[in-house]
Amino acid sequence: MKKYIIKRLLWMIVVLLGVLFIVFVLLEFTPGDPARQILGVYADEEEVAAKRLELRLDDPFLVRFGRYVYNLVFRFDLGISYRTKLPVMQEIATRFPITIAIGVLGLVVSVAIGLVAGIISAVKQYSWLDKICNVFAVIFHAMPNFWLALELSLIFALYLKWLPPTGYKGLKYLILPVAALGLNGSTAIFRQVRSSMLDVIREDYIRTARAKGQSEIKIILKHELRNALMPVVTMIGNSLGAIIAGSVVVESIFSIPGLGNYMLQAINRRDYPVIQGSVFVLAFMICIFNLLTDIVYSFLDPQLQSQYQSNVKSKKRGVKA
């Protein structure tokens, strides 16, 4: 098992390097001279040339990429924002926790809704409950999450005045954005839970359990759900990606000072180091989370476990022979 986790960790480093490379290449294609962007339109040519020399912008592409990676890994440095002239890392660090909170809460909401609705739907297949769940799933699936966020704020903040419309001064302000992202994300989880539950329900061992006279609740939770969860766990990683990507827009709708909102402002101001840094940090977050789900999965999946254990055993045997 340890070997599997190490393998995944090493692979994650490669993936992150790849992500950095993509983002760096993207920045290469952006119009405009970074030195000029930092100094502003009114700086004269000499100043710009001096800045270019200082930033060593005339080095070959790969050298600059290497330096970017070096600065990131050893100095936690993602460059300097064109606009505020502050280090990007510092600005990201203050906004990062809010986005994590939104992402995790959104995921919890979507998993909770998806799981409960999925189980009910599968256990009571073709009932009116199943139909209602399905209808809501397809409706929320078709709605753009930013529109759902706008409509929720219209209803609950502007009309009913139950919740604050914008800003961030505590958890209460996160309810609407989390609801919008969670409802939107729950549809995919719902579908997965329902379909894998339906697969499991038809298995022989469920009939055996029932024949043994086990209670229905025990059958659902212990026999069906446990086996149906496997594909759902892998799905959760994808869902978090979607939720975090969605939070980019939703944060801006509710004026929440998170990483997504920061990135969007940077996009409007063409502040490329910030865009680059934000995309990387968001991808980093998702990678870490995917790694965690993979590890959870490896503990849940006896096949994978035995595969690695038998590998170890056969190697030991090989040494003895």
Partner: peptide, 10 residues
């Protein structure tokens, strides 16, 4: 795989 690490909309 590397591209898939970034959500498509991002």
């Amino acid at each position: 795989d590397v591209f898939l690490a970034i959500p498509s909309i991002l």
